[in-house]
Write a protein that binds this DNA or RNA. Sequence first.
DNA 1: TTAAACTAGTTCAAAGTTAAACTAATTTGA
DNA 2: TCAAATTAGTTTAACTTTGAACTAGTTTAA
Lengths: 149, 149
Amino acid sequence: MSTHYQGSDTAKRALDVYIKLDRAAGAVSSRINHHLTDYSLTVSQFGVLEALYHLGPLRQKDLAQKILKSTGNITLVIDNLVKRKLITRKRDKRDRRAIHIHLTEAGKALIDDIFPKHVARVESEMNILSPEEQDELQRLCRKLGLQQP
Amino acid sequence: MSTHYQGSDTAKRALDVYIKLDRAAGAVSSRINHHLTDYSLTVSQFGVLEALYHLGPLRQKDLAQKILKSTGNITLVIDNLVKRKLITRKRDKRDRRAIHIHLTEAGKALIDDIFPKHVARVESEMNILSPEEQDELQRLCRKLGLQQP
DNA sequence: TTAAACTAGTTCAAAGTTAAACTAATTTGA
DNA sequence: TCAAATTAGTTTAACTTTGAACTAGTTTAA
């Protein structure tokens, strides 16, 4: 929401840019991910399929890191994808604590279908900005995101 | 995650900037909002208190719009704040469908306490960027966020 | 005037989310 | 060597979130 706040100029600027960043990210994500409901996929589920598609089989732990979720959460997200037979769990022979997640043929086919549409949506959203503006936005975001929690 | 994708340059650029935007907004929000757990407030609850603090009494519908949540969700968020006596519901006399939400004294006192700390956190995150960079980020975010769904 | 359309808010089911406590397997270092 | 620490994943409780179906009040237009 807009800032109705009497503070220093630097405070006002910081609040305004924080809100705009949050809104922009939310608006863009929701427009890009809206079509996932057509496939009954959540954003987290799509994130898992996409990671496996591009990176090959991964451990649950690595998937959790990729999509920025807790390991407890990833267990459930994976359970739901396994139920739909889009992925499978395979225990690691060497390190029996770990489980590798693989795309099934059905999962591969689904993400094969969705991914190009996803890219088209991302492009159409981001092409609101010129290539130079996109590069600048990326630079600023990287700078902000890099700090330690 | 980084883009392992063989597509056009514009597609790659768009995917990269989209991911960076999402990550940066997530990282910054999580760092800024972390202290809300000290007050047992969720981000949505804080958003409601903040909106009422700066804008005065609002209808549930308007609160939902402000914090970008569904009306179903706002009902629960408000229920939980009412239970803690931080806000009250008052039926509109003229339009009996509508309910106005008011801050209680306790709610006012709480947000009075939290808000300056919140501002300090936002400032400290955003001052990673120079004032000029903040203005540019705000401009780019506004451009992206303004589009219609 | 009054039926249809719309609007505000509630309820419910399904899923996601986190944090914490837990099991089981592996690594480490005294 | 082997107990302690660490790591991978699961489970649970408490909660948030969404979307859809629903109730009830208001507006509109034939």
